[in-house]
Design a protein around this nucleic acid. Structure first.
Length: 248
DNA sequence: AAAAGAATGTAAGTTACCTCA
DNA sequence: GATGAGGTAACTTACATTCTT
C-alpha cells in the first residue's frame, strides 16, 4: 500500500485487514463505512491512472459492504428496544437466532455455491436484513458442518470396509487351513502307502505372484530349508498337488 | 524478474449463548 | 427451577494466495 494511503487509513482509524484481523473494524462503536468512503474519495482521483481495475472494484465492494454494515447498525441501534438492550451489556456476546426464512434462504444459496464473493455477500445480507459479517460467518460454519458430516460418513464407510476385509481375511485363513490339512492327509496317505517319511512341505502364499506355493518352494526349492524351519522330517521327494503353481 | 510485505479469504479450533429434555 | 447436552453464532488464530511496491 502506498504511504499516502497508509497515512489516510491511520488518520481515520481504519483497519483494512480481514479474517481475524478485521474484527476491530466490525465492532459496534465504529463507523467504518464513512471512513472507507473517505478513503475511496481521497484515493481514487490521485491513483486512477495507475490503479489496476480489480483493486478499485474490490474496494468499491468493500465500501459497499461497510456502508451497508453501518446503515444496518444505525437502524438497529436507533430503535429503542435495541438501545435498551445495548445498555444492559455492551460487551456481552449477543447470540442471534436466525429465522426459518433466513435459514432457508441461506441454505438455498449454500446449495448453489458454498462460498460467496463480497458482492453476493452484501446482496444476501441486504436481502436477509443481516450484517455481511453474519452471512460470512454463517457460510463458514455451514462449510464446517458439511465437512464434519462428510468426515463422519467417510469414517462409517471405512469402518464397514474394514469389517468386510477382516471377514474376508478370516475366510481365507480358514480356507488355507483346510487346504493345508488336505495336503497333509493326502501326502500322509501316500507316504504311509510307500513307507516314506511324511514331507514337511506346507502351503504358503508366494509374495511375488500371490499364488499358493509350498513352503519348500518358497524357500528356494530347498526341502531341507523348509524342514529346518518346521523341525519336521525331510522328504526326499517333495510331493504337493500344487507343485506346478508353486514353481514361480 | 524476484523479493518482501500487505491485503484478503478460508479452515480449524474454541467460546459463549440458547434451547430443550 | 436447576442442570447438562447439543446446536450453532461468533470469535481467534494460522496459513495460503493474490496483489502491490
Amino acid at each position: 500500500m502506498a504511504q499516502d494511503d497508509e497515512d489516510v487509513g491511520l488518520a481515520l482509524g481504519l483497519s483494512l485487514g480481514s479474517g481475524g484481523h478485521r474484527r476491530q473494524r466490525e465492532s459496534r462503536d465504529e463507523a467504518p463505512s464513512s471512513a472507507a468512503a473517505s478513503l475511496l474519495t481521497l484515493r481514487l482521483p490521485a491513483e486512477s491512472g495507475g490503479q489496476p481495475q480489480v483493486v478499485v472494484k474490490r474496494e468499491v465492494v468493500r465500501a459497499e459492504e461497510e456502508e451497508y454494515e453501518y446503515e444496518y447498525e444505525r437502524a438497529l441501534y436507533s430503535s429503542s428496544a435495541a438501545a435498551a438492550d445495548d445498555d444492559e451489556g455492551c460487551n456481552s456476546r449477543k447470540k442471534l437466532r436466525l429465522s426459518k426464512e433466513q435459514s432457508a434462504l441461506l441454505e438455498d444459496r449454500f446449495k448453489e455455491h458454498s462460498t460467496l464473493n463480497p458482492k453476493q455477500k452484501v446482496a444476501l445480507a441486504k436481502q436477509l436484513n443481516l450484517r455481511p459479517r453474519q452471512v460470512e460467518v454463517w457460510f463458514q460454519n455451514r462449510r464446517a458442518r458439511t465437512k464434519l458430516k462428510q468426515t463422519e460418513v467417510d469414517c462409517e464407510l471405512l469402518k464397514r470396509c474394514c469389517e468386510t476385509l477382516t471377514e474376508e481375511n478370516r475366510r481365507l485363513h480358514r480356507e488355507l487351513q483346510q487346504l493345508r490339512a488336505l495336503t497333509h492327509s493326502t501326502a500322509a496317505g501316500f507316504f504311509m502307502a510307500t513307507t516314506l517319511p511324511v514331507p514337511a512341505a506346507t502351503l504358503s502364499i508366494c509374495p511375488s505372484c500371490e499364488r499358493l506355493a509350498t513352503a519348500a518352494a518358497a524357500a528356494g526349492a530347498s526341502p531341507t530349508a523348509a524342514a529346518d524351519r518346521t523341525n519336521k522330517p525331510t522328504a526326499p521327494h517333495l510331493f504337493s498337488p500344487f507343485a506346478k503353481s508353486a514353481a514361480c
